[in-house]
Amino acid sequence: MSAELPPPAEVVQEPPRSSRWVPVLLVVLLTLLLLAAGTTLVLARFGEVAVAVPLRPLPATDGGDPVALEQRAAAARHALEQWRPRGVYIVVDTYRNRLRLYRNGELLRTASCSTGTGIVLRDPRNGRQWVFDTPLGERLVERKVKNPVWAKPDWAFIEEGMLPPTDPNERFDPNSLGDYALYIGDGYIIHGTLFKTLLGRRVTHGCIRLGDEDLEFVYRRTPIGSRVYLY
């Protein structure tokens, strides 16, 4: 007996489940992208941005009578000239730690020095502070001393974690300042150092330290009253 077999049912291939979600995901992604772009644009709308343009200064003065201008210029020149240093003066670069000695504009000596750290020391007892800056600007050599003795101030002890001594005699230190000292006011001194390997670095409490030979050279050629420029 033979019977015809029914034709095989057509196999319908359904797309895999995951691919159904692709368009949905695309739509969601596109929506998120649009939202993000919109939000970004709104944020940018409310934000401000630095605009850099070349400087085109406006004149601060309108001019004036040429004769009066010439008189003003002469007066200003006279004022500037009277401040310019004459004779011997010292220039200290506190960033590069270089000291330069001049006489009438002629460079006599360049020396490596040490200057202030700029660090702040705080007394734990009362919050008192010291700033270890080398002062900036113009100063005068007020006095010169050979074989100086250092009267150690409070900070010298506090920095070492010690209470300042009650006996003043315990503050005197005959060794630390070297052979010569040039006092430039407010306790600041140009002096020597025991630690020459630290020359050229910012390690001091505000004073200017020099090596032995440089210190002697500066000491012998700088009269009292000379100007010192620190920057």
Binding site: G118, I119, V120, P124, I158, M162, L163, P164
Partner: peptide
């Protein structure tokens, strides 16, 4: 600026 401060101070002794 940097600030330094010892935590406590001991009595001075030469």
């Amino acid at each position: 600026r940097e600030t330094i401060a010892p935590k406590e101070l001991r009595p001075y002794s030469s």
